[in-house]
Amino acid sequence: VDAAKLAGIPRGGFPRNIILIIGDGMGQGAINFASLHAHGAPGRLSFEQFPVRGLARTASADSRVTDSAASGTALACGRKTNNGMIGMTPDRKKCRSVAELARATGRAVGVMTSDQLTGATPAAFLAHVPSRKMAQEIAADMASSGVQALIGAGARPFLPEKSGGVRKDGRDLIAELHAAGYVQAVTPAALRQLPADRPVFGFVEDWSNPELLAGFATVLCDRLGRDPEGFFLMVEGCDPDRGGHSNDPDRSAHGVLSVDFLARAALDYALAHPDTLVVVTADHETGGISAAPNRENPRRPFIAYSAKGHTGNAVDIFAFGPGADRFRGVLENTDIPKIFAELFRFRLDQP
Score class of each variant (00 low, 15 high):
99 A>L: 07
148 Q>K: 11
79 R>C: 13
215 G>I: 05
64 R>T: 02
225 G>L: 11
283 D>H: 00
211 E>L: 11
176 E>P: 14
185 A>L: 07
274 P>W: 10
203 F>E: 13
67 D>R: 02
349 D>Q: 12
238 C>F: 12
338 K>T: 04
261 F>P: 08
247 N>H: 10
207 W>L: 05
63 S>T: 07
249 P>N: 02
131 S>V: 01
247 N>C: 13
222 D>K: 14
212 L>Y: 07
338 K>M: 09
184 Q>K: 08
216 F>P: 04
104 A>F: 06
114 S>K: 05
271 L>V: 12
230 G>N: 09
54 G>K: 11
244 G>W: 09
267 L>N: 02
264 R>E: 11
297 N>F: 10
144 S>A: 12
263 A>K: 02
207 W>A: 06
59 A>T: 04
318 F>K: 06
201 F>N: 07
44 R>V: 02
167 R>Y: 05
42 P>Y: 00
112 M>W: 14
319 A>L: 02
289 I>K: 04
256 V>E: 11
13 G>A: 14
35 S>Q: 07
299 R>K: 09
306 S>D: 08
241 D>L: 05
350 Q>I: 10
157 P>M: 02
276 T>N: 05
242 R>T: 01
270 A>Q: 10
36 L>P: 00
164 G>M: 01
45 L>N: 13
11 R>S: 11
200 V>Q: 02
208 S>T: 12
299 R>N: 12
233 L>H: 00
210 P>A: 06
127 A>V: 04
306 S>M: 04
14 F>W: 13
19 I>T: 06
266 A>Y: 01
105 T>R: 03
122 P>D: 05
299 R>W: 09
343 L>A: 09
128 H>G: 03
90 P>A: 03
33 F>V: 08
24 D>C: 08
272 A>I: 05
156 R>A: 15
110 G>F: 00
313 N>T: 12
86 I>E: 08
216 F>S: 05
289 I>L: 12
49 Q>V: 02
2 D>A: 03
179 A>H: 04
145 S>P: 11
244 G>L: 10
106 G>H: 08
62 D>V: 07
286 T>S: 02
85 M>L: 00
155 A>T: 15
128 H>R: 01
346 F>V: 15
46 S>G: 15
326 R>H: 00
141 D>A: 11
